[in-house]
Nucleic acid binder design. Structure first.
Length: 633
RNA sequence: GCUGCUAUGGCUCAGUUGGCAGAGCACGUCCUUGGUAAGGACGAGGUCACGCGUUCGAAUCGCGUUAGCAGCUCCA
């Protein structure tokens, strides 16, 4: 007999050789149906793994992240088997689970078409209905290579493992055998709903030097209803696409004449300027000053900053009077020059210098994506110059500023700590000190973070803030980068209390990240229905007939005087028509005025979110809305 | 940049096997002066992304270029 510790610390006794599947069954049939894999003493295992000694067993279902991954990973094997049946000449690469489903990469003579995908999906469903089980077996490296003799990609993977002397595991599903570490579901019958979402090209091992393979993406669920819900969410995301809404609401435009260089239209400019006003207010409160540095600076500067050696591929260059110049891809070198303009005392530090800097970066044409990925954007940058002793407090201060900004928009976030990249400047020791400082600040604040190995900037490690929007999608926006290198390169100094020269340390940080990207996120987050303080038009006045035009004009003027953004719809249309259009433009308030309202000096108020609000005195409405607009909620 | 797909009035999209370029919305004029999500009539608006080719004839077929979309890679 063995003692098994279950979730919650409950200990039960089972016969030796019992499997996780048996345990799951003994815990209840309902649980058994949704069960995916088991965690035995912290290690993920197949459910049928026999248990031979005392251990802790956790049964994972589709509701657990790891259970879900196993479910999707198994689905990728089913996909591969379906493809094998329809395209016998296929060569298999890899097929992992991802955050939202799974994919499998295939080497086929011609890419898959949407029609192929339908056939594959039908075969997938047929296989699931047949409901076969998976079988695990292990081979040593030579036997594994022998088995996979016609599979060049699998052989490459096996050869990487061969040196370690470990056994290599395989899974057999029907007539499809795949090299795989597992774990997997025992039986595929639980995969009740499938959608093959897309087929695209993808490089073998993610490198553009390698062959382009054909990738099929899919997602599966244990219940049909869950798939339907997922598809609804996808539709919702499409409905909120900022590129679509940007056009419909006349916020911005990107034209053939400047791929990746967005134009901001009057409505978009209002949102942008409101964000900038807010940004200045918050930063003023947190003790920042603001500068503006030139967009074009000479090549010498970029050599000194290290950008020429580490960032040249992304920089636009030009020649002025036979001298080489570059358009700035970052604001920091300009900030350095400003710091150097005058001597500094330790009494001046920390010195927080903000800059809304327009930077240009050459991004690959295929990477461009609406406002999310552009070639010129405004960073809400700031450089903080400080002593080593001030590092931790400053990072804490910046984090609290970020908290304030993100909560303003109802955006939650998670943090990633990116460490030293391969291509970097400076000494290992400095990198360690800097990385530890970032850790220490987060630990003090009790903020959890993930590690993103080797993803730091070339001059220092960074904390990245990934914002979560109303649909649960995440976007990298804010970043705090700790830099020991630039102050060294630019020989920055301050005079300490001891009268000696010392080298300051600096933080580079952005809260919005880029104003352009942040606006894109806000458009999708709010589905175009901006809160009152950001809305391009805050109030629309809709007269019912020409008789009320003078009255409407008067109300319009009074609203504008109160600082509100107003649209007067004096067109020769019925009020129902005007309401429809105002609603589609997501204007927060509309005021309907007819003869009744003229007589009583009132307006009929209809709000975007709450519908008909009844008749209100003009002065009361103006007072209430003007107050609401100042509140920024 | 790479792979695949796409490109037709301001917008959304039809356009069959190659044979005179269409609709709805938006826009303009007129009628209508109305009460909470589309009133009516008329009108203007397009070298079918661009270039080269095949053909008696190209929006349609081929090649190239540009841009967009999806993905890879990269990133604020």
């Amino acid at each position: 007999m063995v003692n098994i510790t279950l979730k919650g610390g409950v200990v039960r006794t089972y016969e030796e050789g019992t499997t996780a599947a048996d345990i799951a069954k003994s815990l209840g049939a309902g649980l058994y149906k949704a069960v995916c894999v088991a965690k035995i003493d912290g290690k993920l295992r197949d459910l049928r793994t026999p248990i031979t000694g005392n251990c802790a067993v956790e049964i994972l279902t589709f509701d657990d992240a790891e259970g879900k991954r196993a479910f999707w990973h198994t689905s990728s094997h089913i996909l591969a088997e379906a493809v094998l049946h329809l395209f016998p000449d296929v060569r298999f690469a890899i097929g992992p689970a991802i955050d939202n489903g799974f994919y499998y990469d295939f080497d086929v003579p011609a890419p898959f078409t949407p029609e192929d995908l339908e056939c594959i999906e039908a075969e997938f469903i047929r296989l699931v209905k047949a409901g076969s089980g998976l079988e695990r077996f292990e081979l040593d490296a030579p036997a594994a290579l022998e088995l996979m003799q016609d599979e060049p990609y699998k052989r490459e993977l096996i050869q990487e493992h061969a040196g370690k002397g470990e056994k290599i595991s395989f899974y057999r599903l029907g007539d499809f055998v795949d090299l795989c570490a597992g774990p997997h579901l025992m039986n595929i019958a639980g995969v009740k709903a499938v959608k093959l979402t897309s087929c695209t090209g993808a490089y073998w091992r993610g490198s553009e030097k390698n062959k382009m393979l054909s990738r099929i993406y899919g997602i599966t669920f244990p219940k049909k209803a869950e798939l339907d819900e997922y598809l609804v969410r996808i539709e919702e995301a499409k409905r909120r696409d900022h590129r679509k809404l940007g056009k419909e609401l006349s916020l911005f435009a990107i034209m053939d004449e400047g791929p990746g260089f967005p134009f901001f239209l009057p409505n978009g400019m209002i949102v942008k300027n409101q964000l900038i006003d807010y940004w200045r207010e918050v930063h003023q409160k947190h003790g920042y000053v603001e500068i503006s540095t030139p967009m074009i600076l000479n090549q010498q500067l970029w050599h000194r900053s290290g950008h020429w050696d580490h960032y040249k591929n992304n920089m636009y260059t030009t020649v002025i009077d036979e001298e080489d110049y570059a358009v700035k891809p970052m604001n920091c070198p300009g900030g350095m020059l400003v710091y150097k303009l005058a001597p500094h005392s330790y009494r001046d530090l920390p010195l927080r210098i903000g800059e809304l800097g327009l930077v240009h970066r050459h991004e690959l044409s295929g990477a461009l994506h609406g406002l999310f990925r552009v070639r010129c954007f405004t960073q809400d940058d700031a450089h903080i110059f400080m002593t080593r002793e001030q590092i931790k407090d400053e990072i804490i201060g910046v984090t609290s500023l970020f908290d304030e900004v993100y909560s303003q928009f109802g955006l939650r976030y998670h943090i990633e700590l990116s460490t030293m990249p391969e291509d970097h400047m400076g000494e290992l020791e400095d990198w360690e000190t800097a990385t530890n400082a970032l850790r220490a600040a987060m630990d003090t604040l009790g903020k959890p973070y993930e590690i993103n190995e080797g993803d730091g900037a070339f001059y220092g490690p960074k904390l990245d803030f990934h914002l979560e929007d109303s649909l649960g999608r995440t976007w990298q926006c804010g970043t705090i980068q700790l830099d020991f290198q630039m102050p060294e390169r630019f020989e920055l100094e301050y005079t300490g209390a001891d009268g000696q020269k010392h080298r300051p340390v600096m933080i580079h940080r952005v809260a919005f990240g880029s104003i352009e990207r942040f606006i894109g996120i806000l458009i999708e987050h709010y589905a175009g229905a901006f809160p009152l303080w950001l809305a391009p038009v805050q109030v629309s006045v809709l007269p019912i007939s020409e008789r009320q035009h003078d009255y409407a004009r008067e109300i319009g003027a009074r609203l504008r005087e109160a600082g509100l953004r107003v649209d007067l719809d004096l067109r020769n249309e019925k009020v129902g028509y005007k309401i429809r259009e105002t609603q589609l433009q997501k204007v927060p308030y509309m005021l309907v005025v007819g003869d009744k309202e003229v007589e009583s000096c009132t307006v009929s108020v209809r709000s975007r979110s709450e519908g008909d609000q009844g008749v209100v005195r003009v002065s009361d409405f103006i007072q209430a809305v003007a107050a609401e607009a100042c509140e920024r909620r």
